[in-house]
């Protein structure tokens, strides 16, 4: 029964993503100034928004880990699993942003990359969380979890800077699409719908990944715990 429900959820997410793809590639009208390449928008922006969400989850879970580390060790381990899993999913989404960005920039701006504030802060965000994942891979134990939690909190501080970069500074990157003044926004309901569907589809996919990953990590924690107990008992 549980397996069937999981399969249904998985099929639902895949269907949602297929529907989002259809909306972005076939249903939404071609953009006036950029042409078909503007369809990258339906991937680039939802992925950026969701990477912020997952880094925010990692941030909150890391704070909870530090708060519960001594007082509630079992809850702290759960928080640690959430922090790790959401950082991983966040890196996946942030990678999509950093890949789709240059693909869009090359035909539209004439360059693959430039060191403006938006692009640079996003790359830094990605690097911080990649280093977080490296730390988690190459070190072990309670000390590593504490260091990782601090690194995740530090990394998440970059999220508001990335978000504000094209508001605070002059950038190559365009002004925000939403709430970016009179020369911004989506002027067509079909385009807006395609964008909304893709935010929804990618959110569903990301949250599903997160749920699976947390589940796996909790199991691994239990395995490690049993191994430690067995080793201490001298078996």
């Amino acid at each position: 029964m549980k397996r069937l429900l999981l399969l249904l959820a998985f099929a639902g997410v895949v269907a949602l993503m297929a529907w989002g793809f259809n909306q972005a590639i076939f249903v939404a009208p071609t953009e006036a100034t950029m042409g078909d390449v503007q369809r990258i928008f339906y991937y680039h922006v939802p992925n950026a928004m969701l990477s912020f969400l997952f880094f925010a989850i990692s941030f909150v879970a890391s704070i909870l880990f530090l708060a519960w580390k001594n007082s509630a060790p079992e809850r702290a381990q759960a928080a640690d699993a959430w922090a790790l899993a959401s950082a991983e999913v966040g890196v996946v989404f942030c990678s999509v942003v950093l890949i789709t960005g240059p693909l869009w920039a090359r035909p539209v701006w004439g360059i693959w990359w430039t060191w403006d504030a938006r692009l640079t802060t996003t790359l830094i965000l990605w690097l911080i969380y990649v280093s977080y994942l490296l730390l988690r891979r190459f070190a072990e134990g309670a000390q590593m979890q504490t260091l990782a939690a601090v690194l995740s909190i530090f990394g998440a501080l970059d999220v508001p800077i990335v978000y504000m970069a094209n508001r605070w500074w002059r950038t190559q990157h365009p002004a925000p699409v939403f709430g970016g003044g009179p020369d911004s926004g989506i002027k067509d309901p079909t385009m807006l719908a395609a964008f909304g569907w893709n935010v929804l589809a990618w959110a569903a996919w990301g949250l599903m990944l997160l749920a699976f990953r947390v589940h796996v990590e909790r199991r691994q924690q239990r395995i490690r715990h049993h191994q430690t107990v067995a080793a201490l008992a001298g078996k």
Partner: peptide, 11 residues
């Protein structure tokens, strides 16, 4: 370098 607006309208 072109700097595009973040306003999308159908062609």
């Amino acid at each position: 370098q072109a700097k595009c607006a973040s306003k999308y309208a159908p062609a």
